[in-house]
């Protein structure tokens, strides 16, 4: 049985750990609230741009643009959104596992795909496995604004336009609720399904013409899809971390309870033993 002092020191260290996890939980909770608000504020923009793209791409049959056309796939791009830091439960591992499995199923050689990794955890994961990481971005702020990541979105869209990849998929954790996230796969490019999504169509006048508008609109749309996923991913990250830290705090307090019980038992046992020894000693004297 562990000595009194050992148990005491374990209790103290567990208490300290639980203080830290508790603090981290509260920090994540407040970050999650802000991330959720950001994702909500972004909603109207996304809806509007989706509406416009759908009605332009669907409304004028002659509107053709390289980003709307599916071409034979020689290389597939995978954009994977993970976090920079760990301690977020299954947040990173579930996305990475999903991507790894998909890549292994779809591709035989490493020449058939490229990876765009957002977040340190994802980057290290793919680099350790010697996979083809074309572009990596670390240090995305907790409350990103569009200007912060416009370089990333631009280069992702450029990769498609320059023929570096022929289709682009995006993987991230979709924020369902504070306790639930869901790994989501989304095809960003080519934008093949926007036409199907349009319900009521408005026929527009184009100033100066449809091609020139699509030229500006489509990259902006693809970029906003990526930005939306990033905001969604951030909200998921914070909620995953909050849940993980809450579990850690709960486990720590359980551990402290059981250790205190052990400590009290050991203390009682020591007292009992001492009394028995004294009584025994006194009896031997008589």
């Amino acid at each position: 049985m562990a000595s009194l002092r050992d148990i005491k020191s374990r209790i103290t260290s567990t208490k300290k750990t639980s203080q830290i996890t508790k603090a981290m939980q509260m920090v994540s909770a407040s970050k999650m609230n802000r991330a959720e608000a950001n994702a909500k504020a972004y909603g109207p923009y996304m809806n509007k741009i989706q509406e416009v793209v759908a009605s332009i791409a669907g409304g004028s049959a002659d509107a053709a643009h390289p980003m709307l056309v599916s071409r034979p796939v020689k290389k597939t791009g995978y954009l994977v959104i993970t976090s920079d830091r760990g301690l977020a439960g299954a947040y990173n591992s579930s996305v990475l596992r999903h991507v790894l499995r998909t890549i292994q199923e779809r591709h035989k050689s490493a020449d058939e795909y490229i990876i765009i990794a957002i977040g340190r955890v994802g980057r290290d994961f793919f680099i350790n496995r010697k996979m083809n990481v074309e572009l990596d971005v670390v240090g995305v702020p907790d409350q990103p604004n569009f200007a912060d990541i416009s370089n990333l979105t631009k280069s992702a869209v450029d990769m498609f336009q320059n023929g570096l990849c022929d289709e682009l998929y995006m993987y991230y954790n979709h924020y369902v609720s504070a306790i639930m996230q869901e790994v989501t796969e989304k095809k960003i490019l080519p934008l093949a399904d926007v036409k199907a999504a349009s319900g009521k169509l408005t026929s527009y006048e184009f100033e100066p013409n449809a091609e020139e508008i699509l030229e500006v609109l489509l990259p902006q749309y693809a970029e906003s899809l990526i930005f939306g996923a990033l905001l969604d991913g951030k909200a998921s990250e914070h909620s995953a971390r909050m849940t993980a830290m809450k579990n850690a705090t709960d486990n720590a307090s359980e551990l402290i309870d059981s250790l205190s019980l052990q400590y009290n038992r050991a203390r009682q046992a020591a007292i009992t033993q001492e009394i028995t020894e004294i009584v025994g000693g006194a009896a031997a004297l008589e």
């Binding site: 006048e205 100033e207 020139e212």
Partner: peptide, 19 residues
């Protein structure tokens, strides 16, 4: 100001898109 020049829009304008 749109890319193609100055624009003024009032109620009842024909549906239009411009960068």
């Amino acid at each position: 100001k749109a890319k193609s020049g100055e624009l003024g829009i009032m109620a009842g304008h024909v549906p239009m898109v411009a960068p």
